[in-house]
C-alpha cells in the first residue's frame, strides 16, 4: 500500500489552524462536546493533529501497531479513559476521531483538485487511517468503562459487608440484600479475617436485611458457619423473620447445628452469656 504523499502531510501542516477550527465546529454540531470544556477540547484537537502528523512522518499509515504510532495510540487511550470517567458514551468518544474526516477530506479535495487519481488514493488512505484510530478509541473506551464498572462492583461488595464489633470478642455482620456466591465469598473472607485479627470467639450474622432465603442462600450460610467453626469460633445467625423460618422449613433445609435467634438483641444476649457476662441495671 502506498504511503501518504508528502504533499498531503505538508497540506495538513500548513492548514492546521483552519482544520482545527472546522473540526471543532463539526464536533460541536454533532453534540459530542457536551460536558467538555472548550479549552480542553481545543488543546486535545491540536495535540492530536500534531501527533498524527508526527506519526505519519515516521511511520506507515497501514500499520498502527508500529512503534511510530505509540504516542498517537497512547493519546487516544488517555482520551477515551478520561471520557469514560466523564460519563460520555462510546459514540461521543468515537465522534472525536470521525468528525475529523469531513474537514480533512475537504482540505484534500481543495489541494488535489487538479489530480483526481491522487485524490481518490489519498482519500482512501486517510479514511482507513482514521477508521482504524476510531476503532482503537472505541476499544480502549470500552475497556476503561469495564474497568470502572468492575471497580464499582468491588467497592459496592465491600461497602455492603461491614463487620462491626459489638463487644470484646463479639463481631456482627449485618447482611443486607441478596446473597450470591461471589458476595458470600467476600463476606466470608472479611468476616473470617476479622475474627483472626480481633481474636473474637463469637460472630453474629444478622440476616434481617436479606429479602429471601432459598436453598442456595442457606447453603452459603451453612458454609460460612462451618468455616467459622473450623477456625475455632462460634457463629449465631440472627434476624430470622417468620416468613423466612417458614420458607426454610418448607424447603426442607437442614440448618442443624446452626444456632439461630429471632433478632440481633437475642443473639448478643446469648453471646454475652457464653462469654460469662451479664447485663444488669445500674444502681
Amino acid at each position: 500500500m502506498a504511503a501518504l504523499q508528502p504533499f498531503t502531510l505538508t497540506a495538513i501542516r500548513t492548514h492546521q489552524a483552519s482544520l482545527v477550527a472546522e473540526w471543532l465546529a463539526g464536533l460541536d454540531a454533532s453534540g459530542a462536546t457536551r460536558n467538555l470544556k472548550a479549552d480542553d477540547l481545543k488543546r486535545q484537537t491540536e495535540e492530536f493533529l500534531d501527533l498524527l502528523h508526527a506519526g505519519l512522518q515516521n511511520g506507515d499509515a497501514s500499520n498502527l501497531n508500529a512503534g511510530a504510532w505509540d504516542e498517537v495510540r497512547l493519546f487516544l487511550e488517555k482520551l477515551s479513559h478520561s471520557r469514560a470517567l466523564l460519563g460520555q458514551d462510546s459514540q461521543q468518544t468515537a465522534t472525536f476521531i470521525f468528525s475529523l474526516k469531513g474537514p480533512l477530506f475537504a482540505l484534500l479535495q481543495r489541494e488535489y483538485s487538479e489530480q483526481p487519481a491522487q485524490l481518490a488514493n489519498q482519500l482512501l488512505q486517510v479514511s482507513e487511517l482514521l477508521d482504524a484510530l476510531g476503532l482503537h478509541t472505541i476499544r480502549t473506551f470500552q475497556k476503561s468503562r469495564e474497568a470502572v464498572i468492575k471497580r464499582q462492583q468491588e467497592e459496592l461488595l465491600e461497602l455492603s459487608t461491614p463487620v462491626v464489633k459489638l463487644w470484646d470478642g463479639v463481631l456482627a455482620l449485618p447482611m443486607i440484600g441478596t446473597l450470591d456466591s461471589q458476595r458470600t465469598q467476600v463476606v466470608m473472607e472479611s468476616l473470617l479475617q476479622r475474627i483472626v485479627d480481633t481474636g473474637s470467639e463469637i460472630a453474629i450474622i444478622d440476616i434481617t436485611g436479606v429479602p429471601t432465603v432459598d436453598t442456595l442462600v442457606a447453603q452459603h450460610l451453612l458454609k460460612t458457619v462451618t468455616a467459622i467453626r473450623l477456625m475455632g469460633a462460634d457463629c449465631i445467625i440472627s434476624g430470622v423473620r417468620p416468613q423466612i423460618a417458614q420458607t426454610i422449613v418448607h424447603l426442607g433445609l437442614d440448618l442443624q447445628g446452626v444456632v439461630t435467634k429471632a433478632n440481633l438483641a437475642d443473639a448478643l444476649k446469648l453471646a454475652l452469656h457464653r462469654l460469662g457476662l451479664s447485663v444488669a441495671k445500674a444502681g
Binding site: 465469598q185 466470608m188 473472607e189 473470617l192 479475617q193 475474627i195 483472626v196 458454609k223 462451618t226 468455616a227 467459622i228 473450623l230 477456625m231 475455632g232
Partner: peptide, 13 residues
Amino acid sequence: LVGMQPAVAITLV
C-alpha cells in the same frame, strides 16, 4: 485443633 487460617477454612468447606 487451633489456628486454622481463613483461606484454609474456606477451602476445606
